[in-house]
Design a protein around this nucleic acid. Structure first.
Length: 469
RNA sequence: GCUCCCUUCGUCUAGCGGUUAGGACGCGGCCCUCUCAAGGCUGAAACGCGGGUUCGAUUCCCGCAGGGAGCGCCA
């Protein structure tokens, strides 16, 4: 059997971490089995669906390169089809018109809850003889009264439901539009979906959907319900943890493959392996190995992974996104050393491209901020003379390379009778404004002779030394 | 309230009847070192509770507790 999976988000919000993980597992399942991956936009709720959300979903998937083979389909363009199927069900007696009003329904629900019952529609319109004047009916599905239905879930295993617990779901609203449940089963059937991999929150809906699919005469797909992703505090994912547009991770300087790698390890593992390339994920992913329990989102581990990817990527491949980060910080990439060299020097000092750009800001203009305490500590009177000597020597260098620079510093340190570090750190503070940077020779090389000498000269005056060479 | 699901270090997880319960993030220490990192070594840190089954349970079964989801003319 040819595998066909789908990702079916409703465009009522942006694509967030939880949605991405669902899409990823569904995509991986299809790719692993050489099958197809369908994208379907479930926009039957016309009140809450927006084009902006559709765009956010499409852009997010594109950034992550979770490519689909079919779609995107839009349910709003298939209303005729749903109406046609509903009519057929009505004719076959598998569905019926219900004239109960919302008010009546609500009152009965409240009553049932008060009596400690599972609130559900009582099926009273099943046997109704004729229409109720003045009421636009809904179409309800006739669910079996008794017996059990079993969901053999790919991740949960055998789950049983009593049919008596299930009520008659609405297929078509009184305004003629289909509900989510109906759209899902008609679409999954029409599109030939073989494996439905979706969030855990749908497990309880599954038995009813299975009944509908059977009534429609479609083969019942296999189901796999993925556990939820919670925030780092164990609470439901919200805006303050990870329920933000996935594209914000791009803006924060994360790499798409790193994010996917992080997500694939939430609920799934392959022994002790932590790093998975796309190809490895596809080759090794197995839905039967997916955990049934919810997991928490850990931003620290995501950062660690991102740095692993930063260190492993060819610097040239990061240039584009790095330069966007510089621009975002108000810096001009053209006003500094070649980006690939900066990335090379900084990537083991930054977890994200944004951090990388911020750390290297002094290479593109005056330091954004100067660590005054470091200035007082390192740019002392005592270091003035060695610093002046070094400045002079650097000015005489034939070529501005880290090797030459290092040689000059070693020589000056020796002549001045100070350790390399005693000289290096003041230089670092002088040229970067802070105490953190790549090895000082590399730092100076990247900065360039002109800027380096200029900043050293200025620092000299701060030491209070008059020994300007 | 009812139905369903879940439960191994703080976190992500390995484990699929017998292990000194392994790895990773984070945290501590040491090494390396011109700073910060990166890297290496290393330390602390877990089987929710109670019953069974079994020669033997983290592992299988049943309760309990705790957490979660669903119960809409939302998806």
């Amino acid at each position: 059997m040819k595998v066909k999976t789908r990702f079916a988000p409703s465009p009522t919000g942006f694509l967030h971490i939880g949605g991405v993980r669902t899409a990823l597992f569904s995509w991986l399942y299809a790719r692993h089995h050489g099958g197809q991956f369908v994208l379907r936009i479930e926009d039957t709720d016309r009140e809450r669906s927006t084009q902006a959300a559709v765009d956010a979903i499409l852009n997010g998937l594109e950034w992550l390169r979770l490519d689909h083979d079919e779609g995107p389909y839009y349910q709003t363009r298939r209303f005729d089809r749903y109406a046609e199927v509903a009519d057929r069900l009505l004719r076959e007696g598998k569905a019926y018109r219900c004239y109960c009003t919302r008010e009546e329904l609500e009152a009965r629900r409240a009553d049932q809850i008060a009596r400690g019952q599972n609130p559900r529609y009582d099926g009273r319109c099943r046997t109704r003889s004729g229409p109720e004047p003045g009421v636009e009916p809904v179409v309800r599905f006739r669910t079996p009264d008794d017996g059990v239905i079993v969901v053999d879930d790919l991740v949960r295993g055998h789950v049983e439901f009593q049919n008596s617990e299930l009520d008659d779901l609405i297929l078509i609203r009184s305004d003629g539009t289909p509900t989510f449940h109906f759209g899902v089963v008609v679409d999954d059937g029409d599109m030939g979906i073989t494996h439905v991999i979706r969030g855990d929150d749908h497990l309880n809906n599954t038995p009813r959907q299975m009944h509908m699919i059977r009534a429609l005469g479609y083969p019942v797909p296999a189901y796999g319900h993925l556990p939820m992703i919670l925030g780092s505090d164990g609470a439901k994912l919200s805006k303050r943890h990870g329920a933000v547009n996935v594209l914000e991770y791009r803006d924060e300087g994360f790499l798409p493959d790193a994010l996917l790698n992080y997500l694939v390890r939430l609920g799934w593992a392959h022994g002790d392996q932590e790093l998975f390339s796309r190809e490895e994920m596809i080759r090794l992913f197995d839905i039967s190995g997916v955990n049934a329990s919810a997991s928490r989102f850990d931003g620290e581990k995501l950062k660690w992974l991102n740095q692993q990817y930063l260190k492993a990527s060819p610097p040239e491949s990061l240039v584009g996104e790095f330069e966007r980060q510089l621009q975002r910080a108000g810096l001009d990439p053209g006003n500094g050393p070649p980006s690939a060299l900066v990335i090379e020097a900084y990537r083991e000092r930054a977890a994200t491209l944004r951090e990388l750009a911020e750390g290297a800001a002094y290479l593109y203009g005056e330091p954004l901020h100067v660590d005054e305490a470091a200035v007082r500590k390192h740019l002392t009177l005592a270091i003035g003379a060695p610093l002046a000597l070094l400045t002079a020597r650097l000015g005489e260098l034939a070529t501005w390379t880290r090797g030459e620079i290092h040689g000059a510093m070693t020589a000056v340190a020796a002549e001045a009778g100070v350790g390399f570090g005693k000289l290096g750190q003041p230089v670092r503070v002088a040229v970067t404004g802070g105490t953190v940077s790549p090895p000082i020779d590399v730092t100076l090389e990247l900065l360039g002779r002109e800027r380096a000498l200029q900043r050293l000269g200025r620092a000299l005056s701060l030491t209070g030394s008059s020994a300007v060479a």
